[in-house]
Design a protein around this nucleic acid. Structure first.
Lengths: 197, 197
DNA sequence: GTCTATAATTCGATAGAC
DNA sequence: GTCTATCGAATTATAGAC
């Protein structure tokens, strides 16, 4: 009874169903980003991906599993070998803008959902703890002050993302990339390195 | 057939059912603020208010009608007669913090829902257009620059509300009111009055 | 004014044929 | 691997008794 065809146990081998999986993920990213978690229904996502709703369950197990897959993006930026004290603000803002625009749907979905969903909020918090806090610590030795500085930077940077990519305030959308760097850079620089007021 | 009892057409007369109405509104504010629009069900709100779910429909017509009533808060602050150019930033941040904490549930609900719901986003935009843009115009004559400055201020101020009241980032929650004013005041001041970089 | 009962949808998830 | 059919639960909203 040799009914089992030879299978490659190689985990990196491209599966035949990768196209479907990718289509689902793309549709899910857009739906979660534009509608939020509750209103992004599996049925609507499946319709966008032009597949059957039950396929979503088969590939991702549940709606939460699908959302986790949407949020699974690599967020690390080419980190500067060592941030100089005097231009760290501009470098951080520039990196943040690249990060957001390279993962527009995933990050917008994360922010949109993180505002309503506890798990999303946790993930957002994790990002800024892993990415921003080390930078603040590098500049500021006092750990309590460092986390306060990281929190202030997060407030400005997340607020920019909120106004520009989620709420789409017209004057904020109209800002050029360089303008944002020019305005926010000194702010972040001050939160990072200015003496406690 | 004199079956109609005499009714006072006085619109300002206190209605007998104001207590129930208020109880519903209070419960709805908290539910919308903590759960967002979709997950704040009429059933849960009614249970919190210790009344029957059908009463919510009777008083507010629909879930959307209830949400509109929740967002109907007077947001105007005691406006300073004339903002001085050199301390406008601190004054604005102080006023903003008072505004938010005086209407904590309503504004948190507005932000939480405005991120997912178009009507909520519109209302948020209206607030900053009506309250922030006039201030920016008072300081900056060029209308295009004024709206850009108002947008930048909105990004920092909304970002602080997001991090502190919605996402509840621990280091941001831990900040004292005066610390926020001391850190954000100069930022807003710069966005408002510094020469275009 | 308040509550019971229920209509009418819609959703996530499952079972099973092919 | 893909699709049909459907279950069970939850929701908003309505009709009507008291």
């Amino acid at each position: 009874m040799a009914e089992n065809p030879p299978r490659r146990p190689d985990a990196t081998a491209p599966r035949r169903s990768d196209a479907t999986r990718t289509a689902i993920l793309t549709a899910a990213r857009e739906r979660f980003a534009s509608d939020g978690y509750e209103r992004a229904t599996i049925r609507a996502i499946a319709k966008d991906a032009r597949i059957d709703p039950s396929m979503v369950m088969r590939y991702f197990g549940s709606k939460e599993g699908l959302f986790d897959a949407v949020l699974d993006v690599d967020l690390r930026l080419p980190e500067p070998a060592r941030l100089r004290r005097d231009d760290a603000g501009e470098v951080l803002v520039t990196h943040f803008l690249s990060l957001w625009e390279d993962n527009l749907e995933a990050l917008t979905a994360m922010l949109r959902v993180g505002v309503t969903n506890a798990a999303g909020a946790e993930r957002l918090q994790g990002i800024f703890r892993d990415q921003l806090l080390p930078v603040a610590r590098q500049v500021c030795p006092d750990p309590e002050q460092a986390s306060a500085r990281a929190g202030l930077i997060a407030s400005q940077v997340l607020g920019m993302a909120l106004a520009r990519y989620v709420l789409k305030f017209p004057p904020v959308v109209a800002l050029a990339r360089e303008e944002i760097v020019a305005w926010l850079g000194p702010t972040v620089q001050r939160y990072l390195a200015a003496p406690h007021p």
